[in-house]
Structures are given as structure tokens and as C-alpha cells.
């Protein structure tokens, strides 16, 4: 066990993947000598060489498009998109090629590509550096979309993503990069929980709160405050957005009768909308209140001086919990 930040846990996971499989390659802007703008790939080029840890030209579509060719050749590329808002030049390659190639080739040419994207706000950044575009990718068949919320999961999940034969969009909650936890850096992924399953991170009987990535810590903090008032939140870390572990959430809602979904992304057509529809269909007779959503507004991500008003925080989560309980 070692006290490790999420950024260092991902770094250790990448290192392990590079050690374990010679077909694993890293590619991205500034990931080599600099070690990435968040230092997530720090030291990897020095130890694994420029042929395996590749500083790419400044072109996101080029990064993902060449990863497709490398995957066709039998490699397992792990590409870094420097910030959430810069993934869109690569959107075409991700949606039309990465996502569809396994189906198009009748399973002959899988696309074991991991696309790492630091996402979300709360770091006081300029425009395009704070977004949560995960729903676009979860909407696309052929992609898997996962997001760790803590260093322990990050260390396992990044390796599981790389080991997966399907393309995985791996959303890293950048404002949690510096969160620390005890991580067993010798842990094997064979014994780790599937990255495509949700996990109840705090049991409780009053209201189910489903969240992922950066919002898990926020919701756990809300649960602590709520408990002081006698309200027991059951906090579920979804971990995976595609596939979405509806059964775990449904089982919880059958116990609590109430569901609040929390994410930084805009609520309109977001993961919360999907979860609300599915839970309404599956748990209709268990629900004591409509499923409520807490998330970003239908606005561009605001200037950073306003982001505290845009992002869900402890109070907005508790407000939704109160509204759910008031029904």
C-alpha cells in the first residue's frame, strides 16, 4: 500500500500495462518529455522509449485515426486527448471508425483502443478545459465509456480498459487528479471488480444517489451532512456509463423508493435522463418520487468565475434529496 494521487495511480497503471504487454503504445500531445500537461505519463517515455510513448503532432483526429491503423496492425494504443473540449476534432474518427469497426469487420478487426480524456470542471480553467462530453460517447454503439472516481479504481480501471478488446473512452476527473488514497500498486486486475459494474460506495435507506467521476466525492460529502439530519443516502458510483449498470441502481431504488442522479454534464439528454427513463420503467411501483437530476445547465460551460454556480455541489445535491423526500 502506498498513499497515491489519482494522477500517479493512472501513471502506475499505464506503466504496468506497458510492462505487461509489448503491444501497448501510448500516444498523445506532450505525453513524452513533458509527461503530459497533468504529468499523468511522467517518466514513461524515458523508460519505454519514443517508439512506445509517442509525442504526436498537434492533431487529435490524427492521433485517434493513426491509433485505428495501429489497432488493425495488432497494437493496443492508449491515446491521450489533452482536454475534454479538444476531443471534437477526433469525434469523427471515434464515432465513424473506432466505434463501428468491429461490427463492420464482423468481429475480425477489433479496436482495442483506450482514449483517455481528462474531463470536468472546478479547476478555474479557460474555455474548453472543463467540459463533460461523456454522453456523446455513451450514445454511440461500439464504444465503452468508464470513469474512475478515486485512485484505487483509477489504477485498476485504466489497466482493465487497456486489456479490453473493445474501444474504451476513459474519462479522468481532472479535479480529482490530486485526491489521495492508499493504493496497492501490486494488485492484479484479474481480482479487481469489472470496470463495467457500478458499486455502492455508501449504503443507506432513504434516497439513492447515483453519480460518477468527480461527483462521487461531492455526493459522499453530501451523504455525511445528510446523515447528521437523519437522512441516509445510498451513494452509487456508476463507474461505467456504457454499459450502464441499471440492475445495481434498480435494486437500490427498490429499497429506497427514491433516486437522484448527479453529474457535471448538462442534464438535458444526459446520463441522468437515461437512468431516469430506465428506472421509471423498471421500478415504477417502487418509486415514491420522480427521479430527479442534478447537473450542468443548458448553457456553454461558463467563465470560470461562475463555475461554482454551474457545477453541482453539496447543497444542490441535498436540495434534490429534500425535494425527492418531499413527494
Amino acid at each position: 500500500m502506498a498513499v497515491t494521487t489519482m494522477a500517479k495511480a493512472i501513471n502506475a497503471g499505464l506503466r504496468k500495462a506497458l510492462e505487461d504487454d509489448p503491444k501497448v503504445l501510448l500516444m498523445g500531445e506532450d505525453i513524452g518529455k513533458l509527461g503530459g500537461v497533468f504529468r499523468v505519463t511522467d517518466g514513461l517515455q524515458k523508460d519505454f522509449g519514443e517508439a512506445r510513448v509517442i509525442d504526436s503532432p498537434l492533431a487529435e483526429s490524427g492521433i485517434v485515426g493513426t491509433a485505428v491503423g495501429l489497432a488493425m496492425r495488432g497494437f493496443r494504443p492508449v491515446v491521450e486527448i489533452q482536454f475534454d473540449g479538444f476531443v471534437f476534432p477526433a469525434f469523427d474518427q471515434i464515432v465513424t471508425q473506432v466505434a463501428k469497426h468491429n461490427a463492420r469487420s464482423s468481429g475480425r478487426t477489433p479496436m482495442p483502443i483506450t482514449i483517455r480524456i481528462p474531463y470536468g470542471g472546478g479547476i478555474g480553467a479557460v474555455e474548453h478545459h472543463s467540459e463533460s462530453p461523456e454522453a456523446y460517447f455513451a450514445h454511440t454503439a461500439g464504444l465503452r465509456v468508464i470513469s474512475p472516481s478515486n485512485p484505487v479504481d483509477a489504477f485498476a480501471m485504466v489497466r482493465q480498459a487497456i486489456a479490453c478488446n473493445d474501444p474504451v473512452v476513459f474519462f479522468e476527473p481532472k479535479r480529482r487528479y490530486w485526491d489521495k488514497a492508499d493504493v496497492d500498486l501490486t494488485a492484479d486486475i484479474t481480482s479487481a471488480t469489472s470496470p463495467f459494474e457500478a458499486r455502492i460506495v455508501r449504503p443507506g435507506g432513504s434516497v439513492t444517489v447515483a453519480c460518477y467521476g468527480p461527483m462521487v466525492r461531492t455526493c459522499l460529502e453530501a451523504a455525511t451532512v445528510a446523515a447528521a439530519d437523519g437522512t441516509e443516502l445510498e451513494v452509487i458510483d456508476l463507474r461505467s456509463l456504457s454499459p450502464l449498470d441499471v440492475p445495481t441502481v434498480a435494486a437500490s431504488v427498490r429499497r429506497t423508493g427514491r433516486l437522484v442522479v448527479v453529474h457535471e454534464a448538462p442534464v438535458f439528454l444526459g446520463m441522468g435522463a437515461e437512468l431516469a427513463a430506465r428506472i421509471t420503467e423498471e421500478c415504477f411501483y417502487s418509486l415514491e418520487a420522480p427521479v430527479l437530476r442534478v447537473g450542468g445547465y443548458h448553457t456553454p460551460y461558463p467563465p470560470s468565475r461562475l463555475e461554482e454556480d454551474y457545477l453541482p455541489d453539496l447543497d444542490r445535491v441535498l436540495d434534490a434529496v429534500d425535494r425527492a423526500l418531499a413527494f
Partner: peptide, 12 residues
Amino acid sequence: DQTLHAVGYAMG
């Protein structure tokens, strides 16, 4: 789109 795949394959 395939031009990038070709280059990636060649890099492989």
C-alpha cells in the same frame, strides 16, 4: 478517414 488508418498501420 482511411488515410490516417494507413499511416497508423505503417507506423505499426
